Structure formats: structure tokens, C-alpha cells
Amino acid sequence: MSRKATCADNAMMENFFGLLKQEMYYGEEVVSYEALQKKIEQYMDYYNNERIKQKLAGMSPVKYRTHASQSAS
């Protein structure tokens, strides 16, 4: 942990929440907490397993981690 009020501590989560709101939440009408919870869980699954990232050689985070661990062994 770094010192208090260092923005780099939360940078990854802030980025994720910004993307979540931008891609899934804004402009959508949510009826209940349960519906919002289900949509967030679906988005997290999509984000980790299907959404490709150019920084990760055009792979999803899970595929990239699997590929990297297979290459290392």
C-alpha cells in the first residue's frame, strides 16, 4: 500500500467501473436491485471471457492468462 490519497492504488478498479457504466449502465432503465445485480454479473462474465482487448493481443483476459501460463511452462 502506498500513502493516503494516491490515485494509482485504485486505478484498475476505477477503470473497470468506468467501462462498466459506459458500456452497460448509461441509458438503460433498471427496474429492481435484482435486475441490476444480474446485469452486472453478466457484464463481468462478458468482460472476463468474451470482450477482446487490443492490449492483450486481441484476446479476452481469461484467454490471455491461459495462453501466457501455457507459454511459460
Rank of each mutant, 00 (worst) to 15 (best):
M44S: 13
G27N: 07
M1T: 15
C7L: 06
A35L: 02
V30M: 14
S71E: 03
A68D: 04
L19Y: 06
K4L: 12
R3Y: 12
M24Y: 12
N15T: 14
E50P: 02
M24I: 10
K39W: 12
V31P: 03
E29F: 12
I40C: 12
M24F: 05
S2V: 06
Y47H: 05
K39V: 15
Y47S: 00
A5G: 12
N49G: 13
Q37R: 06
D9T: 12
L36K: 05
Q22H: 10
L36Q: 04
M24P: 01
S60A: 08
Y33D: 04
A8D: 13
S2M: 09
M1Q: 14
Q54W: 11
N15M: 15
A68S: 02
S32H: 07
M59W: 04
E41Q: 08
V30H: 14
R3N: 14
I40M: 12
A57M: 01
E14M: 09
E41Y: 07
E41I: 05
D9N: 15
V62C: 02
N48V: 08
M13E: 11
K39C: 15
E50A: 06
R3F: 15
D45T: 10
E29N: 15
A8Y: 08
S71P: 03
K55H: 00
G27A: 06
H67T: 02
A72N: 00
F16A: 11
K38R: 12
V62R: 00
E14S: 14
E14C: 04
R51S: 04
F17E: 03
G18A: 06
S60L: 01
E41H: 05
S60R: 00
K39D: 13
Q22K: 06
T66W: 02
H67D: 02
E28Y: 03
S60E: 09
S69L: 15
L19V: 06
E29R: 06
A72Q: 03
L19T: 09
K39E: 15
K39F: 13
Y64T: 00
R65T: 03
Y64Q: 01
L36E: 14
E50L: 04
Q54R: 11
K55G: 09
P61F: 02
N48H: 11
L19K: 08
F16M: 10
Y33I: 06
A8K: 06
T66G: 01
K55Q: 02
L36D: 10
E14G: 08
S73C: 01
I52S: 08
L36N: 06
Y47I: 01
K4S: 13
S71C: 03
E50F: 00
M59P: 01
A11R: 11
A8H: 07
M59T: 01
I40L: 13
E41S: 11
I52T: 11
S2N: 13
F17A: 11
V62P: 00
N48R: 02
E28Q: 13
V62I: 01
E41N: 07
N49L: 11
N49F: 10
L20N: 02
R3G: 14
I52L: 14
I40K: 10
G58M: 00
C7D: 10
I40P: 10
E50G: 01
Q22M: 09
Y25M: 12
Y43H: 06
E29K: 09
M12W: 13
A8R: 07
Q37T: 13
L56Q: 05
N10W: 14
S2A: 07
R51N: 10
L56C: 11
K63R: 03
Q42T: 08
R65L: 07
